[in-house]
Each structure stands twice: as structure tokens, then as C-alpha cells.
Design a protein around this nucleic acid. Sequence first.
DNA 1: AGTGACTGCCC
DNA 2: ATTCTGC
DNA 3: GCAGAATGGGCAGTCACT
Length: 515
Amino acid sequence: MAPLYEAIEFGIADKFIVRAIAQAYNNSIDSVTKAFKKAGDVGTAAESLYRGHDDHLSIEKVYDLLFTITQTSGIGSREKKIRLLAELLSSVGRLSSRYLTRIPLDKLRLGFSDMTILDALSWMLNGNKSARVKLEEAYNVRPDIGYLAKTIKEHGMKGLSHVGVKVGAPILACLCQRLPNADEMIKKMGRVAVEPKYDGVRVQIHYQQTTKTFSRNLENTTDMFPELQNIGKQLNAREVILDSEAIGLDPKTGKLISFQETTTRKRKHDIAETLLKVPLKFFVFDILYKNGESLLSVPFSKRRRILEETIRAGNSLVVSEQIITDSAAALRVYHDKQLKKGLEGAVVKKWDSPYEPGRRGYTWVKFKEEEGKTGKLTDTIDAVVMGYTSGEGKRTAFGIGQVLLGVRRGDDFVTVTKLGSGATEKELGGLFQSLKKLRMKEQPKEYKDVDKVYYPDVWVSPKLVLEIAGDDLTKSKKHGAGYSVRFPRLVRIRPDKSPHEVTTVKEVETLFKQQ
DNA sequence: AGTGACTGCCC
DNA sequence: ATTCTGC
DNA sequence: GCAGAATGGGCAGTCACT
């Protein structure tokens, strides 16, 4: 409904949609939940329960009502949002109920999104994709499909001529691709800059007397970083747009802290106190604009020189270090050094490439784990499947969306993570065949301290073992193991292992301390 | 004042 | 974030 | 190789309820 950089939220997700459908079509919350689980999609669930009357509302009317929902807050707002959505659902047709329910979830599932629409706009103008490149350039600095469509509909491509980089208007961030190893990176990218990969949050800094900042997804985060309001003295420039990673320091030791701790700075209350508890360093690694000039198409080698000339030593901003190389061996050595320092790894950047927003091409590549390994964790974890959920969308066909995994504590099992990534469709099918035989009516007695939020659709007896990988272990307040896995994924199914052989809580703790 | 349910946004 | 899949 | 669609932990914020 709105461009990324406008903070418009519905405040409605799965649970509230279910309640709205229940209210609109006169069903119990339970039966709607069941229909939702069965369909694996709110849209088809709404459709199947549809009991409304089509008032032929205009698109404007629907838009207005949805917008009203986004603007509703305060005491009584939850009921009101649900009521507004329910009223809307009861006055549209059956088919509309499918899409209307998906809108707040951002799950229209039409098989296309912004990029495809750029192609479509090009077809609209030229009957082919020839305008895509230009459209994409405009999109990069004005990621607002509605605005672009309207502009070229009215003025053709000429209408885009004034769409350019502007301080205060967020630019689509350049993201990293992945490649399996250093050799591939050098082969694909040639001469590269290699920089430390900090495990913090992305901050795009816009400065022109005052500072505005944007997150990786272009949310305005200005209020979170009051320390950036006085960076003028760190800049040899009137106006700039910088790209950086912010990471917290331990105020006593000055050491970098974990992502989990850094992220407590992501707040809008008590900012002044938290600022002292969690001071941030902004590792600046790119410059996109300086004194009226866009640097997006300038090669990185040159941008880097400009960046170094622009930043002065000071409290908040630090120019990120780097090496330049075209040797895979040197790249490997540098990457290993970053891991030893406790950083996330390295980012490898094509030395002569322009700033390429999005994740296309191989201009930036992340290098996190050691070669040949899955995940950064020193060892994989063997965990037992405690239950599974039926899954949404495509997963519905396999009967499994995710599995709840446990590790051993004495003769009991406690949860350590859920897992939904890494299985091929064939493996998912296989998992379902194995697990449906292990179905239990109730939570098995040996499953201890399971938090409600993890209750699966189906409990299974502890038989099937999975080997999983991850990037980090985190301290967990919710998982019974006391720890959990960051970015968990399936390595392989271990029919050869018995549940008694799975990793123990003690071993998980040891792994945590090794990090 | 404290807690739990839910959501949105970081990774 | 990671991973898989259809095109 | 891209675009899309499944899925993860965990933080803060908001609102409802006790």
C-alpha cells in the first residue's frame, strides 16, 4: 500500500486476521484457526468460510478502510481493528475475501513483486523490457512502485528525469550474495576489497546539517541514534549519504558486543540511558553521495578514496578497514583472521564496481563459514523431533512446515529450536512419512519446559533425529535448553541415530562457551 | 505495576 | 537471516 | 542467476488483562 520508507503498519497478523474472519463470517475462532491450518493460507481459509454480501465497494473505499485500520491505536484499538477488518470482509465478495485477508500479512502470493512490476511497466511503455534498466535506476533511489507507475503513466520515461539521489530520501541498500569459497569469489569478481563483517545493524546515514538514518529495509531509524546528530565535525563535507554497520561496545572493556546485545539499542524509549549502557560505533564502509553529487555509479575504488577523505577521526564514525587483493589465498587468510577476532566473517567487494542496490550480480559477497562447512557453528547439533506444524503455502502439500527440535537433559528432552529451512521437497515428504507414524495425542511426558509459543500442531514421540547447523548459539529465555540456534538449517536426516544419542544440554552449553 | 499475547523489525 | 525451486 | 516463497531466534513496543 505504501513505499517501504513510509512507516505504515497494520498491527494485524495471523491471530487478528483469524479473529476478523471469525467475526465477519460468524464462526468460532477455533474453527477459523482450523480452516487456516488446513488451507495453509488465510486467503483460502477466508474464502472457504465466506458468508458475506458483496456491496461492490470501490477500491478507494477499501483503501480508505484499510488505511483507517493502520491509523487506529490506543485503548480499545485491537478490538476496533478487528471489527473494521471484519466489517470490510463482510461487505466484499468471496474472491475479495481471499486477497483482502492477505494484504495485512504482506502475503498476496501472486507470484510477483516489485521487480516484476518494473518489467511490466517497461512492457507498458515499450512493449518489451528495454526500459527496465532505467526504471530500476529510478527505483533504487525512489523505491515506490506506485509513484513510479503514476509518473511514467502521466509523463513517460521523461517523468523520471528528476528522480535522483536526495539527502533524506533512502536509497535501496546493496546486499550480499553468497558463493561457496574464496576461489569462486576471485574467479567471479577479480580484484576485490575485503572488509570485516560486523554483526550489528545496517545504518544508512544522511547528513545535511542534521542527520537522518534508515535501516536496511529503509525504515526511518533517526530517533535511535541521537549521537549521530553531531557528526558534522567528523565530516569534511556539507552533505553526505554514508553506508555503515552499527555495533555496540562494552563501555568498560571497549570490546564489540553480540548482535543480541546491540539490538537492545533498537528502541524508541529510554534512548538516553541505553545510549550510555550500549555505546555504538558506526563502521562506515561506503559513501553514496557527497555535496550535491551522486556517487552510485562511481567505482568502489574511487568511492573509497572519497570516503577516506570525507571522514575525520572522532567518536561515532570509523572508516571500516579493508585490504585489496586478487588472491584467493590472501582472501582466505583475511577471512580466518576476522573469525578469530570474533567477527562474523568478511565481506568481499568487487573493487571497480558501482554501488548496486539489491542483491543482483556479484558485487558484494559475504564470506562467513569455513570452506566446506555448513554454518559457522564449530559443530553441528543432533536433535530429536518433538513435533511439527502443518505449514503454509507450498508446504501444505507436504504436510510439514517446520519441526520442533529438542536436545537431551537426562532422560528428558527440552526444546532448542524450531527448524524450517534446509530440507528439499523430497526430504520434507520423507520427514512427513516418518513423523506421521510417531504421532502422539498429547505432549509426551519426557518433554519438559516447553513454552506455549512452541506448541506444535502435532506432537510426536521422540524417535527421529536430525542433524542441524547454525551460525551461532544464543542465550534463550524461551527454549528449555537455555540456548538456541541462530539461523538453524537441516544438514541431514539421521535415521542411524537413536534419540538417546542426540546432543545434550551440557554439550550445547560447551558449544556456547566455545564461541 | 506486572505479565502475557501479539506484532513488527532486526539479523 | 538460510535454503530450495521454477523459470 | 534471478525472483519468489517457505522457514529460523529474539529484541522492543503496544495493548489487554490482572
